[in-house]
Design a protein around this nucleic acid. Sequence first.
DNA 1: AAGCAGTCTAGAATTATTCTAATCTTATGG
DNA 2: CCATAAGATTAGAATAATTCTAGACTGCTT
Lengths: 143, 143
Amino acid sequence: MTTVDQKKLEMSDAVLADKLREVGLRPTRQRMALADILLSQGKRHITAESLYSEATSQGVNVSLATIYNALHTFTAKGLLREISIDSNRSYFDTNTEEHHHFYFEKSGKLEDIEPDHVKLARVPDAPDGMSISRVDVVIRVDG
Amino acid sequence: MTTVDQKKLEMSDAVLADKLREVGLRPTRQRMALADILLSQGKRHITAESLYSEATSQGVNVSLATIYNALHTFTAKGLLREISIDSNRSYFDTNTEEHHHFYFEKSGKLEDIEPDHVKLARVPDAPDGMSISRVDVVIRVDG
DNA sequence: AAGCAGTCTAGAATTATTCTAATCTTATGG
DNA sequence: CCATAAGATTAGAATAATTCTAGACTGCTT
Ligand SMILES: [Mn+2]
Ligand SMILES: [Mn+2]
Ligand SMILES: [Zn+2]
Ligand SMILES: [Zn+2]
């Protein structure tokens, strides 16, 4: 509410807008609102529907098409990472650093694994002239 | 074509039927046909649609609902394993032994990794009283 | 301020999957 | 064997998730 707080918010917006511009995306009203939800809080695992609900409940009016557009363009630009659990459950991860996941089969929730708690001793070479773009480890837990 | 071959086929059917009964499934006509496609050939990565096409093109008349029923019950009984790549691409793996995969982003194909080519040095403990039901490693390759 | 490329949107369309409810089949056991 | 019940199959409807379309709108460059 103070001038200081307002300044912080404005800075934050400027930072967000820069983050978008850096990857070649225009900081439009909708993208800024979604980027705020997605990128200016802690690391999260979000679905299209949960992002839509969250935006809507914050009074951000955005169409579902825009939600999908944003999730996919953000992912393509490296601001998000997609993690698919099964044919009806796909998450977008706001943590784009290399890390792995627990998946709780009962609750359907994903949880980051501490980086040093999982370690690959051996990773195969990619075939031919191909290269590895990502390694995903999902540890399924029955509880 | 010979008597021997016919006997082999009959044996194979008997073996298949037993495999189904062993896990508590009735060896119905449709399931036998699908189990034949799924379980009596080499290890494969199959989608609902590809199984449907394959069955249909072999003259096996089976509804898509039965395809999904079979894939899910087989999976629940441990005869198959499901691997989800993204929200629109889910495979069923006829290889249920512990193993990991390459995913070729361009072609959309999955390929088994030689078991000794990937090794986890460190796997975290499951939280609480939970236990790890499976560890999936998918190595994405851009080619 | 003008113009263009990029973006947004509502709603339709598509795709994947599941459900429903009627019909059919396998296993059982008398 | 045959009756029966539990389990399985099916067509088609329904649902859910995602993508497409085409027109309106806006951020950015000049
Ligand atoms: Mn679905
Ligand atoms: Mn889909
Ligand atoms: Zn994560
Ligand atoms: Zn495999």
